[in-house]
C-alpha cells in the first residue's frame, strides 16, 4: 500500500464519479438504453471510478425517467466490465430486506462493481406515493435511515465468503455454520434474515451516502464507504475534510476507509478546458478525495467530460492511467476490494 497522508498530495490520485443524467422534461425525447450504454462505456474507457445513477426527482418538478435506477444498473452491468455502477434507491420506496437483496444481486451480476447511493435527506413528495401521506418527521427519518442502513449492511454480511461448498457427492451445498441470521429488532424494523443472495464478490456493495447534514457526519464516518458532499469555499472544505477524517479514525478505521467526493455541478456554460485546473486546485488543497461530476441535463455532456477533462487530469498526474483491479472497491482503494 502507498503511504497515506504525507504533507503534500504528491503521488495522490483523485477518484472520479460521474452522475448520469437520464431524466428529461415531458415532451422531450428520453435517452434509449443503447445511448446510455454508449456513454457509460466511454466513461469506462476513460477509467472513471463509477457512474452514479440518480432516481426520482426530489425537486417536485415534473420529469420523465426512461428507466428506474436499479433495473438500469443491472442492464448496464452486462454491457460493461470494469466501471463501478452506483444506483440511488430510496429508503421510503423499498423495504430494507428487498433493497439489500436487490443490491446484493446487482453486485453478483456486475462481478463486484455495484454500489447503493442512500440519501439522509427525505424527498419531499415521495412518502405520499408509498402509503405514508404524512411523511416522516425529520427526526424520525434520520433515526429510521440509520436503522435501515444498519440492517442492509448486516444482511449483506449474512453469508461468509466461503459458505458455499457446492459438494455434489457429499450432498452439502452450503455450510450451515457460515450462514448467519440477522435477528434485528429495532424501533422501525424487525428483520430476521438471512438474505437469500450469496456474499458479494467485493465483500459488500459499496455504500455511497449523500444529502448529509453536519449531525450525520459521525454516522457517515462509521458506516459509509463514500460520501458525496456539496462544494463549498476552500477553507471550509479543508476543515470539513480534516474533520471527517478525524471522525473516521475515531471509529477505529484508517482515515482513507471513507472517500469524500465533492459534488461539482457543471453548467452548459462552463468551459471544460478550465474545469481540470479547478479540480486540480481543489484536490491539491486537501479538501476531498475526488469529485462527483454532475453534468448538464444532456447525455452527451458525459462524453465531452471524459474526452476533455479526464485526459488533462491524467496529464497532470492526478488521475490513474487505468483500472488496477476489477471491483468498485478496488477502484476506490477501499479495504476488501481484492486486487489493489
Amino acid at each position: 500500500m502507498a503511504a497515506r497522508h504525507r504533507g503534500s498530495r504528491m503521488g495522490h490520485r483523485m477518484h472520479l464519479a460521474v452522475s448520469l443524467t437520464i431524466a428529461s422534461v415531458p415532451g422531450q425525447a428520453s435517452p434509449t438504453f443503447g445511448e446510455i450504454a454508449a456513454v457509460v462505456r466511454n466513461a469506462e474507457a476513460a477509467g472513471v471510478d463509477m457512474v452514479v445513477i440518480p432516481d426520482s426527482s426530489v425537486s417536485g418538478e415534473p420529469v420523465v425517467h426512461p428507466f428506474e435506477a436499479t433495473t438500469l444498473l443491472a442492464a448496464l452491468a452486462t454491457v460493461t466490465s470494469r466501471i463501478g455502477l452506483v444506483a440511488a434507491a430510496s429508503t421510503v420506496a423499498h423495504q430494507p430486506y428487498n433493497l439489500a437483496r436487490r443490491f446484493a444481486s446487482l453486485d453478483i451480476i456486475s462481478h463486484g462493481r455495484a454500489g447503493w447511493n442512500a440519501t439522509m435527506t427525505q424527498a419531499p413528495r415521495e412518502a405520499a406515493n408509498f402509503s405514508r401521506p404524512e411523511g416522516f418527521s425529520s427526526d424520525d427519518f434520520h433515526r429510521r435511515s440509520q436503522e435501515y442502513i444498519d440492517i442492509v449492511q448486516g444482511l449483506w454480511q449474512g453469508w461468509d465468503a466461503d459458505a458455499l461448498l457446492f459438494d455434489k457427492t457429499g450432498g452439502r451445498f452450503h455450510d450451515p455454520e457460515k450462514m448467519h441470521l440477522l435477528d434485528h429488532k429495532g424501533e422501525f424494523f424487525s428483520v430476521r434474515g438471512p438474505l437469500n443472495v450469496a456474499r458479494s464478490p467485493q465483500d459488500t456493495p459499496v455504500l455511497v451516502l449523500s444529502g448529509l447534514q453536519e449531525p450525520d457526519m459521525d454516522i457517515a464516518a462509521r458506516i459509509s464507504d463514500v460520501i458525496l458532499l456539496d462544494d463549498e469555499p476552500a477553507e471550509g472544505a479543508k476543515a470539513r475534510y480534516a474533520d471527517l477524517k478525524r471522525r473516521v479514525a475515531a471509529c477505529g478505521c484508517r482515515p482513507d476507509a471513507v472517500k469524500a467526493l465533492t459534488n461539482i455541478s457543471l453548467t452548459a456554460d462552463d468551459r471544460l478546458d478550465a474545469i481540470a485546473g479547478r479540480l486540480a486546485e481543489q484536490f491539491q488543497s486537501n479538501s476531498c478525495d475526488g469529485f462527483n461530476i454532475q453534468l448538464p441535463a444532456r447525455l452527451s455532456a458525459l462524453d465531452d467530460f471524459v474526452a476533455v477533462v479526464v485526459p488533462e487530469l491524467r496529464r497532470r498526474g492526478l488521475f490513474r492511467e487505468a483500472y488496477r483491479g476489477t471491483t468498485l472497491r478496488s477502484h476506490l482503494a477501499l479495504a476488501a476490494g481484492g486486487d489493489q
Binding site: 433495473t71 444498473l73 442492464a75 436487490r102 458455499l164
Partner: peptide, 13 residues
C-alpha cells in the same frame, strides 16, 4: 435453494 439472484435485477440484466 437458499441463495440465488433477486429476479427483478436478474431479468433486467
Amino acid at each position: 435453494r437458499s441463495i440465488g439472484f433477486e429476479p427483478i435485477s436478474l431479468l433486467s440484466a
